[in-house]
């Protein structure tokens, strides 16, 4: 048996699929592939066996920059007390409430 090291491992790609025209691409999982073209091909076989998509994006996982989950509270909680940003904050007379 070969001893395997991560150097021989195909790089990891994140896969995004647009399920139909008019909708946005949505993250649906990841896979290993040697290059971009290979990633698109494998993504078709792994993630769209039942016409789940009309378009695929792939991006190298190590190229994704993400917010730090440790900063979650600091980043997102300040929006909590800004209820006036939502339409439901405003009580209007019944006759115009559907605006």
């Amino acid at each position: 048996m070969n001893t395997t090291t991560t150097q021989n491992e195909w790089p990891l790609w994140e896969v995004f699929v647009r399920s139909k025209a008019g909708l946005d691409h949505k993250h649906c999982g990841s896979l290993h592939a040697p290059d971009a073209q290979g990633a698109i091909q494998l993504a078709r076989d792994v993630y769209t066996r039942r016409q789940e998509g009309t378009s695929i994006w792939v991006v190298r996982s190590d190229q994704i920059v993400a917010s730090d989950p440790g900063d979650k509270d600091m980043y997102f909680d300040p929006m909590e007390d800004k209820v006036y940003r939502h339409p439901t904050f405003y009580q209007l007379p019944k006759s115009v409430d559907h605006m």
């Binding site: 395997t4 991560t6 491992e9 999982g29 990841s30 896979l31 290993h32 076989d45 792994v46 066996r49």
Partner: peptide, 24 residues
């Protein structure tokens, strides 16, 4: 059988998010 292969791949990818490589 192709589905089973796909299921294996979804699951390996999920396991890898925990910091273990596919080769491991």
């Amino acid at each position: 059988v192709q589905d089973e292969g796909g299921h294996g791949l979804y699951l390996y990818a999920a396991a890898e998010t925990l910091g273990t490589s596919r080769d491991q």
